[in-house]
Design a protein around this nucleic acid. Structure first.
Lengths: 231, 231
DNA sequence: CTTGAATATGAGGAATGTTCATATTTGCGA
DNA sequence: TCGCAAATATGAACATTCCTCATATTCAAG
């Protein structure tokens, strides 16, 4: 009885035995996450209540806790979704970079995309705010900044074989980490000021990352990279 | 009976009538704040319990709530203390600025001082972390960034009468706001990396604020501004 | 149909912020 | 010194919310 694979179909790998149930579960998890996002968009992440998530998802609190061991885990899953999305934007933006000029364009476009996402998605904004309220989530965001920084640094290292790789990594790390905060700042103020603040951050970032070799006029005229929401 | 001033000494202004009690109260408030700081330093701001603050302060919970209407108010008072301290550092650093060269030195020294404070004071670090957990406190910090930015911009406007004042204000605002986050970042990692990250932030800030007219070597050699803790 | 395992349920436990009826202290005039 | 009214202090009780666990239900195979 101790061997879980003593049933007839023991020929398969040691995973769980009933597949269709897992599929059903995944749908339930999706629903819980969607509902949580919805609630956060409606009332802010501070007001997220586990009981409310369960109720609106049509499941009991117990079931919710079966999939997310605690509230932090639920928030972490939401944060991870946002992170996956932003990582995708970064990868897309960096993929087309062939020279320094490309880089400046791509990076500037990336910031614009970020900004547009934050403006358009109250849920994303509040999920990120909520991510700062919890120590564990802050750790996650720190790792994410490292990953994002690494993605950018990778391109820079390719463009500048003679530069100090460690320094490039540090610069990109700081720039990406501060970028998150810059976005929060920009959306905390009225629109016109937010736009100007984003430009300021962009200038600081490009100066640090060596992207100041392209003029501001060129940046303003060029096409944006990575529209959002994706069509 | 409805008129509160129907008693004999109605000649004084409508303020409270007994002074000495107020002095005693101030001492009690001081004690509460000190205890809260202590507890935060010991266990982090997440673990701050109102009941514990009251107990260790030698007062009842009710008394604590008489002076701080809710937990946020207590945290806000602590945050405000940190802000007052950092504002003092900024003012002191900016007071001696006579030209661009002074400015770069003063600003770089200011960042170093900030960093040293964060390294030395776990309470300050955790109070600031706690300040992000609460919406109301985030508003406070935003205002504080504006004030700090204004202090720096004021000097820059004096140094550069022909520059766009609004642009200087924006730059200083962003730089100061991101500085707070840069400090949090720097102390989240091991010391050596933190040092390097602070240097990166310093470089970004000085580039944005126009302080790149002084060489890095000069900055490294120069005296630090504003030691901490104050003697 | 029976059975055992997987899954679902929601009342209840535990922690903690906040209130309020009561008790104590304080300043002051008689 | 005594007594009184206002200010202040107290902590038990309340309200909210996260989370657990004993019980009930569903599922799929024999």
């Amino acid at each position: 009885m101790q061997n879980r694979n003593s049933s007839p179909e023991l020929s398969t790998s040691p995973g769980p035995r009933r597949m269709p149930v897992q599929k059903r579960s995944r749908e339930r998890v999706e629903r819980m996450l969607a509902v949580a996002t919805e609630l956060i968009a409606e009332k802010g992440s501070d007001a997220l209540r586990m009981a409310e998530v369960a109720e609106r998802s049509g499941v009991s609190i117990g079931s919710l806790y079966q999939f997310f061991p605690d509230k932090t885990a639920l928030l972490a899953a939401l944060v991870e979704r946002c992170n996956a999305e932003s990582r995708r934007c970064i990868e897309e933006a960096m993929a087309s970079v062939r020279d320094e000029h490309d880089f400046s364009r791509a990076f500037a476009g990336l910031i614009d995309t970020y900004y547009r996402i934050f403006l358009a998605e109250p849920a994303m904004r509040d999920i990120w705010s909520g991510a700062q309220a919890d120590k564990a989530l802050r750790e996650i965001q720190l790792l994410e900044s490292r990953r994002n920084g690494a993605l950018v640094a990778e391109v820079l290292k390719r463009l500048r074989p003679h530069a100090d790789p460690a320094e490039l990594e540090r610069s990109a790390f700081v720039v990406m980490h501060l970028g998150e905060e810059a976005m929060r700042l920009a959306i905390s103020v009225e629109r016109a000021e937010g736009d100007a603040l984003v430009e300021t951050y962009k200038r600081m970032s490009l100066a640090e990352l060596g992207g100041d070799r392209v003029t501001c006029a060129e940046l303003a005229a060029g096409p944006r990279c990575g529209d959002w929401p994706p069509a």
